[in-house]
Design a protein around this nucleic acid. Sequence first.
RNA 1: GCGCCCAUAGCUCAACUGGAUAGAGCAAUUGCCUUCUAAGCAAUAGGUUUCAGGUUCGAGUCCUGAUGGGCGUACCA
Length: 541
Amino acid sequence: MNEYLEKIITSSLEQFELEETPEIHLEAPKVESHGDASTNIAMMLAKPLRNNPRAIAQQLVDGMEYDEAKISSVEIAGPGFINFRFAEDYLFDELDSIIKAGEEYGKTDAQKGKKVQIEFVSANPTGPLTVGHGRNAVLGDTVARLMEWTGAEVDREYYFNNAGRQMRVLGQSVQARYLEILGKDHEFPEGGYEGEYIRDIAQELVDEKGEELADADWTPFKEKAEKAIFADIDGTLKRMKIHMDNHFNEHSLYENGDIDSVVQRLRDKGLVYEADGATWFKTTEFGKEKDTVLIKSTGEPTYRLPDIAYHSNKLDRGYDLCIDVFGADHIATYPDVLSGISALGYNKEKVDVIIYQFVTIVKDGQPFKMSTRKANFVTLDELMDEVGADVTRFFFLMRSPNTHLEFDIAQAKEAGEKNPVFYLQYAHARIHSILRKAEEEYSFSGDVKLNLLKEDAESSLIKTLFKFPGAIQSAADAREPHRLINFLNDVASAFTTFYHDCRIIGVDEELAQARIELAKVTAQVLNNGLKILGITAPERM
RNA sequence: GCGCCCAUAGCUCAACUGGAUAGAGCAAUUGCCUUCUAAGCAAUAGGUUUCAGGUUCGAGUCCUGAUGGGCGUACCA
């Protein structure tokens, strides 16, 4: 429809003989009396044409030729908006095409042929996933689903590091607990991991190996811990309906020489130098105040180096777009990565970073700081035990990524009745309940007469359903899943109004048939939308 | 000190990227179940969009400054 409107506006614009055609911006007005679609083009042209916007709008409208089967009226309103109203026949035609699209409705080919990689979660195996990781995981997965619905081919990747100081401390922590269980001398490492899960892992080792490891160093403990924790993380992700296509070990970048190669390539470009025993990257060339250390004087790389190597590795794999999902604490690190890859000759536009703000945990009415190491955290599994996977996913998605998310545990736990996710599921279940009942009451023959749907609540619902592909598109482009939630709320709300104003069972057969069709389409849209969010659409509640 | 993010109803958040009368959900008040699910609906109340300027036909949205909060700013990851 928008394409059609653009066409008729463009052809009417020709009368002004403009040097360049301005971009035509169309939008759906908030207020019903402003029509179904609206453009501000006349106001945009007021300045270049040195004329009153209403006068321009009038000329545009006069010069417009349109199909009355699609558009029933064109009006000028306010300071110079041109408002279009869709013809009823058009609504029914479109509705019919939604019915035909079925579970494919909402998909577009806007990103057709694009290979997209999205890296998220990427927690190192030092402990179970917490509520903090949850936002990352759900955000990444849902953006991936959104991209898929706009036609892209998406790979989900988990990047991890199972070497380094963190992992050594982890191994030593397990070792200490192991010795403790055996009643032997042990020393808990400084800054060690205090969580109960460490004890569990140690206990497993005791059960499996007895005292066999009493004199071992921390290595077998680290290996056991890594395995156990990854298994735990995988289980949590699975519960959240998240599936990774790839796991990428940072260490492989050292083994395949990518790390050395990156340093060498940067050095060849004169962007790397040695000073104070360390190897530096000239980030000042990219507008930063200070240069950045790539390799410490101890010979160990800083995290930036493997990050740059990893991103160049991704781009070498032929992705058109690589999306990273980072918490706000990484906000300062990715500019270095972008500088690095553009220095290496890659197009940094191909890397896109979603930064989400932190989750503030509110427990017993008090916010508290979480720390994996100190073990005062709420795990995702615990959360899902309390409220279920649907509510958990929904909660993380309902807010814009760049605002803080207040996660009140108590509220989430008692959310059963008042949680907004139920509003959507309830609308869906309610429709199915009607459909079940209708099946007993009616047996239809003959074609559906959609043009019987003339009530306000009916056309308003139909128009809302039309916005689904646009809502997906907008959520995908902005990487903001909450936009889809807002849309689905509109659908559920429009359906509920329809449900109250228009009876389905009990009216005459042709009308009932048409209304059932509308209800079915609504259920389909809710179902498709919830599928993108990774939330179930129950048929009974 | 510097950089990024944020400030909207009592609370938690929207506002289609500059549009028309700033919207939902909780919480409050009041109605509505002998008819398809009341996990719902309708109505009332609640706002100088933190403050001060600026840009323009038009600003919650953009620019400058101030205030308040979050996160960074390491040869930590």
